[in-house]
């Protein structure tokens, strides 16, 4: 079953255009949503949840259109945008006592479990928490109503490596039974290499790829060689960089075949992002 089906979301701002964004996620999996800063990750997530008004497109969650079923669907969705910078002067327990009123399936036991797990003191005020603790509190609130679909915007930013790793472990725990699904955006791609099943990659408001992580990494190769090699290959590559030893570049695996003897490696997600950004830079220069 598809937990999320996004079709053709468009949103125009003065200097940014979210262009026909479409992708979907099967139930029980973790999808990482990657892209550089300003690529449209947050706008897309907000568009999915009707926080912003989309100019076009449809969003189906659990097979139901969000327009018209928003309130009922949101009971089953956990949603976190950035850290908890709400009500800095209020105690955690006051805020949670309010949040739980909104959810018919609030799970007090789970809530207390997360408080303990994240070492959060409910007697503290939000402003007394560090950035990392605020994110953990926001997560605690988001995860304590038995949501089946969890959408998190940059949940790992501001966390130290140990806390990040713990969080990713928690994500995998959550999907272990197969009834929960997670979509989270990040620009720390090493997070995804550990736990993501699917990757959706957005660049400059457009979806470049949305597929399994294995297939995505399999689809590209990082190649390097001499400058002579480059001359023949340049047209086929996503983009390339010259250095004093020759060049390195990104190419689709299927296009690599004719060039025997070229040193090719599996790229990291970072490599893919970097060379797509480079491509855009090149195009921009070309257009001038």
């Amino acid at each position: 079953m598809k937990v999320l089906n996004v079709q053709g979301i468009c949103k125009r701002y003065d200097k940014f255009y979210l262009d026909d964004v479409s992708f979907s996620l099967d139930e029980g999996y973790i999808m990482g949503f990657i892209g550089s800063n300003g690529a449209g990750k947050t706008t897309t997530l907000k568009g999915i949840l009707n926080v912003i008004h989309k100019d076009a497109g449809t969003v189906e969650i659990f097979g139901k259109n969000i327009d018209g079923n928003e309130i009922a669907l949101k009971q089953d969705i956990a949603f976190m945008m950035g850290s908890s910078d709400y009500y800095p002067g209020r105690k955690l327990k006051t805020i949670s006592s309010i949040v739980q009123r909104f959810y018919s399936n609030w799970n007090q036991e789970a809530y207390e479990g997360y408080l303990k797990r994240f070492k959060l003191d409910p007697e503290k005020k939000v402003k007394e928490l560090s950035q990392g603790m605020r994110i953990k509190f926001a997560l605690t609130l988001a995860l304590s109503h038995n949501a089946r679909f969890i959408i998190l915007d940059e949940p790992t930013s501001g966390l130290d490596p140990v806390a990040r790793d713990n969080l990713l472990e928690l994500f995998q725990e959550l999907v272990e039974k197969g009834d929960k699904s997670i979509l989270f955006s990040t620009h720390i791609t090493s997070d995804l290499e550990k736990c993501a099943d699917y990757i959706t990659y957005i660049n400059n408001g457009r979806i470049i790829e949305s597929t399994t992580k294995d297939d995505l990494l399999d689809k590209y190769r990082l190649v390097n060689g001499s400058e002579d090699d480059l001359n023949g290959m340049k047209e086929d590559m996503v983009s390339s960089k010259k250095n004093s030893f020759g060049f390195t570049g990104l190419i689709e695996t299927v296009k690599l075949k004719p060039y025997k003897g070229i040193n090719a490696e599996v790229p990291t997600l970072d490599d893919i992002m970097i060379y797509y950004a480079k491509k855009e830079e090149d195009n921009a220069q070309f257009n001038i």
Binding site: G28, Y29, I30, L168, E169, Q172, E173, V175, E176, K177, G178, K194, C195, A196, D197, Y198, T212, K213, D214
Partner: peptide, 17 residues
């Protein structure tokens, strides 16, 4: 599969494969 993925810290799809 899902338990192995969690324990090995890799994707469910990878383990499935």
């Amino acid at each position: 599969i899902r338990t192995a993925a969690k324990e090995l810290r890799i994707s469910i799809i990878t383990v499935k494969k």
